[in-house]
Design a protein around this nucleic acid. Structure first.
Lengths: 247, 247
DNA sequence: CGGGTCGTTGACTCGAATCAATATAGGTGG
DNA sequence: CCACCTATATTGATTCGAGTCAACGACCCG
């Protein structure tokens, strides 16, 4: 009746939804879920088909995208390791979920998940909290999109990525003063789609942050946070900040 | 064991969360909830205090606002009659809920609600669906903020208000070709705070919509939709639309 | 009827978008 | 392993939509 070895060895067990369940709900879930690798770019669920997947993200990043008929796209959410992906009970909006990087998932069909959930109401309660947290993030994102400068947007995104990627990489470690050697899960284009900007604008802001010694980049898909404090400042209120204060 | 008279006479009973509950869960809820009037401008819950209210909105409009230390504000959600207001189980973000107009609420303490919920898990399931729907709205709002022009933003907001206000006013009526004599629950300033714009920009867009015969206004807090089709077009893709096509 | 808030309009500025060249990374085949 | 090739990223010049600042007008209150 013990959990399978893959659960005991699971790097996100505590941080994920599973970590908040009791022994038997966790066990019941473990019986229907299985590991899976998904290559970057794969669509996990799209606007058309019924979202019939439930998954916990073990590694990699998933982007949630709204696409309109005229081609405009907006990334409205990012899911990191330990987050869940899926839309139990959900209506058909124009939302799709796509692997931004190669993923490791622990997943099952939506139907199987709903069955386990019906037998273990605690899962429902935990899911409710997770969705409420997602709602909070979505609203904070709306603030970012509506009320901040390009500078703040880019800095906030890098800050978010630094926090979430570092947490999933140096687990257990004491908090580091600054995050080094982080992989950047998004292209410039995708960053722009996140932030309601054009990719050229994202580039320019990245260049500025580099020249101010806030970050540095290595290749296209990696960066360092040289000064977390500065980054936080840039994210919070770039407008109230002169170049002197920032450098 | 019947529901109290105020429930049977409740104008939003079917559309609200209560309408999706079984007989006894609805009855249990009705015993802890009570009617309340709240004047416009009152803060229902704020960033500081623990959000300890749960309410179903019977009439009026509630705005959900994020305020940053530097004074920037963004309205990240509107709740209309039949929606719920409150944050069961929720973390402290910088979100506050404020009455945009005079409200009629059916409410109880968050604690009381959680107690009833624990005894009637169906409430949890229904709440989960409502929150998931809110999450969807929040993400669609993020698209609006990130990827649309001022024109589309204003048109979309008016369209949303027309839909939700009409639904709560002419309940039961067949769908009207266009909504007339709608009350506008927000000031220009609040509209701007919704849309990530300045109030002057909102004004200019309103003026344009009027001159194109899409809407008309009567006083500060009322408007008509003269041509719902045009409004929908303006909301969907103002950029792809010349003045000729619109007029 | 007068005062104050809120809304409207106008003139001008500025930040990000757009259009247009490069430059670099990273993969491919020789 | 190197040279090439194509995606992606960067930088520059210019435009344009929304912001800002300022004046005026309309509505709502006592």
């Amino acid at each position: 009746m013990a959990l399978p070895p893959r659960c005991n060895a699971c790097p996100v067990r505590e941080a994920s939804l599973c970590g908040s369940l009791g022994e038997d709900a966790a066990h019941a879930l473990s019986r229907v879920m299985h590991r899976m690798r998904v290559p970057a770019g794969r669509v996990i669920y799209g606007a058309a088909e019924r979202a019939d997947t439930f998954a916990i993200l073990i590694s990699g990043v998933v982007k949630l995208v709204i696409t309109k008929p005229d081609g405009r796209q907006q990334i409205v959410g990012l899911q990191f390791p330990s987050d869940f992906v899926g839309r139990p009970f959900l209506d058909g909006s124009n939302l799709s979920a796509e692997a931004a990087t190669t993923l490791e998932l622990c997943c099952c069909s939506g139907r199987a998940f709903e069955n386990v959930m019906r037998e273990h109401p605690i899962i429902e309660r935990v899911l409710l909290k997770r969705i409420a947290a997602d709602l909070d993030s979505a609203r904070n994102w709306a603030f970012l999109l509506g009320r901040t400068t390009a500078q703040e947007k880019v800095a906030s995104l890098l800050h978010l990525i630094a926090e979430r990627m570092a947490r999933s990489v140096v687990r257990g470690d004491r908090e580091r003063p600054c995050a080094l050697g982080l992989s950047l899960p998004l292209s410039r284009m995708e960053m722009a789609e996140c932030l309601g900007l054009r990719l050229e604008t994202v580039c320019r802001q990245m260049t500025q942050l580099k020249s101010r010694g806030v970050i540095s980049t290595m290749g296209r898909r990696a960066f360092d946070v040289l000064d977390m404090e500065k980054l936080r400042n840039c994210a919070a209120n770039a407008t109230a900040m002169t170049v002197e204060e920032c450098v």
